[in-house]
Design a protein around this nucleic acid. Structure first.
Length: 310
DNA sequence: AAGACGAAAGTGGTTGA
DNA sequence: TCAACAACTTTCGTCTT
């Protein structure tokens, strides 16, 4: 767990306990109060470069200050193609001695072109990973790094062929989020990457299968801090909501239900119990589900929790 | 007037023959 | 490839605060 505590007189005191001490949790991209744990800021922006350079050449390659390296200009018109016919520019046959040379030239020309194209695509993909995860407030470590690793593996196994770079980038990010227990919904990723939800899901399953990535289903608990903070709910409500989810999971409740719906319902109940009531509509909006789903989960949960004191 | 509730029909995706 | 199916959504009418 990468987290550190800092304190600063300029900081707004925590609304709950007035403390000016903060915990920075780089994994979840959250800043919370060191005393009471209230999440105060969930959009940590990392201003440093996302790359590491080990020598000058890499630094030159990776620095993106100055004229941008453009990935959009294809090498059309700039490449040299070597005809397969063994004739020179005047149409005369090339001598036996030069023919072997031509063969080697052709081979190398082809190789260089392919490797350059591959590098360019990878660079494009990695910068895309960075752009999208930045929009999603995802921490560099471990999520973006994990997404890059996944994408590289996919490249190595030739899984990108026939699929768009953008959609595979989105799928890599989604997979990395799941693996790091920092879930983002398909909707959120779809919105930021401009790739349809359906396609991300499809590619994600494809990636998981081909790369043998085993993933446990996301727990509703993982969504609680983010939703609660967006709703302006206190830390107490979060804890209560997590309690509710844990109790219901013990009773074998959540299987097959969408985790965001369960998280939303738990938050809704917790907010009512602690007198910080939010309307179903608002909670539904934040969680990306409808009021009806919240109602259904709410009903099921209240039937379930009869014996337990909440 | 806004929020909560529930019924009914529709949607997109999975599964199993 | 198709039909059955479960979860979720949309829509709408009614009741509650």
């Amino acid at each position: 767990m990468q987290s550190n505590i800092f304190s600063n007189g300029d900081l707004e005191p925590c609304p709950l306990c007035n403390s000016t001490e903060r915990i920075v949790d780089n994994q979840r991209a959250e800043i919370s109060c060191a005393l009471c744990g209230l999440v105060l800021d969930e959009s940590l922006v990392d201003n440093g470069p996302e790359w590491r350079a080990f020598d000058h050449e890499q630094r030159d390659k990776r620095t993106r200050v100055g004229a941008p390296l453009t990935y959009t200009i294809s090498d059309k018109g700039l490449t040299t193609t070597i005809d397969w016919k063994n004739k020179d520019s005047n149409g005369r046959m090339i001598s036996e001695r030069n023919r072997a040379q031509m063969y080697r030239l052709r081979k190398w020309n082809k190789r260089l072109r392919v490797s350059r194209a591959g590098e360019r695509n990878l660079a494009h993909a990695l910068s895309e990973i960075d752009r999208v995860s930045s929009k999603l407030d995802l921490p560099r470590s471990p999520v973006r790094e994990d997404a890059s690793v996944i994408y590289r593996q996919a490249t190595k196994k030739q899984l990108i062929r026939g699929r768009s770079i953008e959609s595979m980038v989105a799928a890599s990010i989604y997979t990395a989020c799941r693996r790091c227990d920092i879930p983002r919904t398909l909707e959120e990723i779809s919105e930021m990457s401009q790739v349809p939800k359906k396609q991300i899901g499809k590619n994600y399953r494809f990636l998981a299968r081909e790369l043998n990535i085993k993933l446990k289903p996301t727990s509703p608990v993982d969504y609680i801090p983010r939703f609660a903070t967006r709703l302006g709910l206190s830390n107490k409500v979060q804890i209560k909501a997590i309690d509710i989810i844990n109790i219901s999971m013990k009773n074998g409740f959540n299987s097959g239900k969408g985790p965001t719906g369960v998280a939303a319902a738990a938050l809704y109940i917790a907010s009512m119990l602690l007198g910080e009531r939010k309307s179903q509509k608002v909670v539904a909006g934040v969680a990306g589900v409808t009021e009806v789903t919240i109602r259904n989960r709410y009903k099921e949960l209240s039937e379930l929790d009869l014996g337990t004191s909440l």
